[in-house]
Design a protein around this nucleic acid. Sequence first.
DNA 1: AAAGCCTTCACCCGAAAGGATGATTTCAAG
DNA 2: CTTGAAATCATCCTTTCGGGTGAAGGCTTT
Lengths: 142, 142
Amino acid sequence: MKKIILIYGASLAVLVFLLKYLEYQFFAKDLALEFYLAVIAILFTGLGIWAGFRLTRKKVVVVKMSADFVFNERELDRLGISKREHEVLEWMAKGLSNQEIADKLFVSLNTVKTHTSNLFLKLEVSRRTQAIQKAKELSLIP
Amino acid sequence: MKKIILIYGASLAVLVFLLKYLEYQFFAKDLALEFYLAVIAILFTGLGIWAGFRLTRKKVVVVKMSADFVFNERELDRLGISKREHEVLEWMAKGLSNQEIADKLFVSLNTVKTHTSNLFLKLEVSRRTQAIQKAKELSLIP
DNA sequence: AAAGCCTTCACCCGAAAGGATGATTTCAAG
DNA sequence: CTTGAAATCATCCTTTCGGGTGAAGGCTTT
């Protein structure tokens, strides 16, 4: 966060410097221009960040509660299950084979196999049926 | 972090190049103030949005669960699933392997395999995970 | 810059699961 | 008594899974 802010600042400084240089070379006009540019840049950077937050927030508002299921994110975190792994878990619970999941997620079979293996370790099970069973108990999936 | 620096650098380079080029080619004079402002504004708005995107994440959801199960014997009948097959189905849903089910029911592995095969035919599925999924939908098992 | 996850993909090997078919025994119903 | 469904077990063969290992690239954090 701080680094990004610093980088923004540095970028602005460099930009202003460059513009000033250009102006010197070609216009040799009034020096107030840089201030306009800097102000505009800062303003629009803030605006952009705000817009970015807005946009992502909208994306996060993807609240989906089906019937009577509440996602237990705490447990998911505790077990260290990643986003992708959880995704694989969901499809797995729907009865898809590894190959089918691979097709659905546009990755290779090997990748899905890796995810499932990691899932089994994290869930402390050794078969997909057990994984599904346990995941449901923990409210990791509907 | 490297990426951020690189992107900023590239953006600045392109910007400077463009300004210089345009200046050379067309307006040999100023009057480009508004143009500069517009370019800066657009560029930094984009960067801000991008930064906003990478700075945000997280989400929360909470609900509750209810679980009342009513055995659907009618469906079981309709599908012609026998008592033994249903028994196998129940253990299957608990994550047991065919061998484990065989041990639990004091029958051979082959017998369990026969039961599961028949179950898959009757449930019109081809994998045990699908069978479990479907059996739950039909309230054949909790 | 370095250390650490996440994601992706690969290869190998053995175990489990699934499909097809056939056979025996038991038991209830026609 | 004959028929048929259910339950049992078997063999053969193919596909899917699961486990182990390694590795490359990206992003985050320190």
